[in-house]
Nucleic acid binder design. Structure first.
Length: 410
DNA sequence: AATCCACAGGAAGCCCGGGAAC
DNA sequence: GTTCCCGGGCTTCCTGTGGATT
């Protein structure tokens, strides 16, 4: 490759991380540390496939980054090892965050296994009853056990009721030759409450809960990946324990731990350093948090941004805390400058609550006696984010805005 | 004890866009 | 195509409330 603007970056990039994909959360390692028992209990249920029985339906609970998806995909791989051609069992993985309609699910079940291109189900066009019966017939013809993993199953419940779950459970009864087992994965334990009782009991023939990893376990996970991803000596000795400790505090999220390690390495690379230090990790932690906040702020609807902007202006105006009335009057000013419709105070209080829920501001109701009962509001995002919001194209007209010392205009 | 401030936050209903059903 | 339905954003109207002040 000839010399180009990329050259020095490419050279640097290769220096620290040997294999970046290993640090991605989507990477499925050969062994899953500290998930032996979980794998075993899932395998025990699934094993009945090889005795010609239908495995019980399984529901798996656990917070994000506790290895639920990894365990199921691991099981999927193991199935393929035992039964490479899929003669007895068919493993189907569906992420309901991506595919969240009845049609989409049936479509996935059909098309993940139909080899014959001409017989594939079109991605749109068929009516519900047609796709249901076609899928059912296809599944039945195969004379196999279908293991359908529904990741993020809670996404299905609010969307279109629990119809799709009901249909899938019912399909199993309509099948003569094949069998259909469902494995639901959810990080919300309470999602069951919203289910039809009959669906609930049939879906949860087996229930499992994955506990969060503790710091020690996270360390092992990181170590096993780091061995593959880094050359020896690239990580300072404190790096992995630090990543683990930081993530253990956030509910033992392995996904986060990996993110932290990967980001730290990326930062080190970009700096041209040849070792990853604890300082890099701390920097990475900060960067990740900042990224999350800035994404949420960017994604805010215009009205909420304007409310937030009002809060920022009030913060600048010496008073660290403010009340709803202060925010609302500034908000009205800003709306006029930006030529936006002015929402009612009732609505704005709701927007303030939303900002509070997102952790962008901190608001608590307080009574000031005769001075009324209202919310006391405080900004809780770093200055960089405020700057970013000001740079927002829609906020351009506010450059000249001066907060009136007397807030009461009306 | 009564008053009263400055809202909080519930209830009902309007409007609008989008998707499903007819 | 039209109609129906649903959900989200929003308004209007409303009742409720903690505690300094009277």
């Amino acid at each position: 490759m000839s010399e180009s603007v990329f050259t020095k970056h490419i050279e640097r990039r290769n220096r620290i991380v040997k294999n970046k994909s290993i640090l991605q959360t989507s990477y499925l390692p050969e062994i899953l540390p500290h998930r032996k028992e979980e794998i075993d209990s899932v395998a025990a249920v699934i094993a009945s496939v090889f005795e010609g029985d239908k495995p019980s339906n399984i529901l798996i609970f656990g917070q994000t980054g506790t290895g639920k998806t990894a365990v199921m995909n691991f099981i999927g791989n193991e199935l393929k090892k035992v039964d490479p051609k899929g003669e007895t069992a068919v493993y189907i993985y569906i992420n309901c965050e991506v595919v969240d309609t009845q049609y989409g699910i049936l479509h996935s079940i059909g098309n993940q296994t139909i080899k014959d291109f001409d017989k594939r189900i079109p991605f749109t066009g068929w009516g519900m009853d047609k796709i249901y019966s076609e899928t059912k017939n296809y599944v039945d013809e195969q004379n196999k056990v279908f293991i359908v993993v529904l990741d993020e199953i809670d996404r299905l419940v609010n969307k279109s009721g629990d119809d799709i779950l009901y249909h899938l459970l019912k399909m199993n009864e309509d099948l003569k030759n094949s069998k259909l087992s469902l494995v639901g994965i959810s990080n919300r334990v309470n999602f069951m409450e919203f289910l039809d009782p009959r669906v609930r009991s049939r879906l949860s023939e087996e229930k499992m809960t994955f506990d969060p990893y503790d710091a020690k376990q996270l360390e092992d996970i990181l170590r096993s990946r780091a061995e593959l991803a880094f050359d020896e000596g690239v990580l300072e000795s404190g790096v992995i324990p630090l990543c683990a400790a930081k993530s253990a505090k956030e509910m033992g999220d392995a996904r986060m731990a990996l993110n932290l390690l990967r980001t730290a390495a990326e930062i080190a690379e970009r700096n041209g350093d040849n070792v990853v230090t604890e300082a890099h990790v701390l920097y990475a932690k900060n960067k990740i948090e900042l990224d999350i906040v800035s994404e949420t702020v960017k994604a805010l609807p215009q009205q909420s941004k304007t409310v937030l902007m009002s809060i920022i202006f009030n913060t600048r105006q010496d008073n660290k805390t403010m009340i709803t009335g202060d925010v609302y009057s500034t908000y009205k000013d800003l709306c006029n400058i930006l030529r936006m419709t002015v929402l009612t105070q009732r609505r704005v209080t709701d927007l303030i609550s939303e900002l509070d829920m997102l952790g962008i501001i901190h608001a608590r109701v307080r009574s000031f006696g005769r001075a009324g009962r209202t919310r006391e509001i405080e900004l809780s995002i770093p200055g960089e984010i405020c700057k970013m919001l000001e740079e927002d194209e829609n906020m351009a007209d506010l450059k000249s805005y001066r907060h009136p010392n007397q807030t009461k205009l009306m």
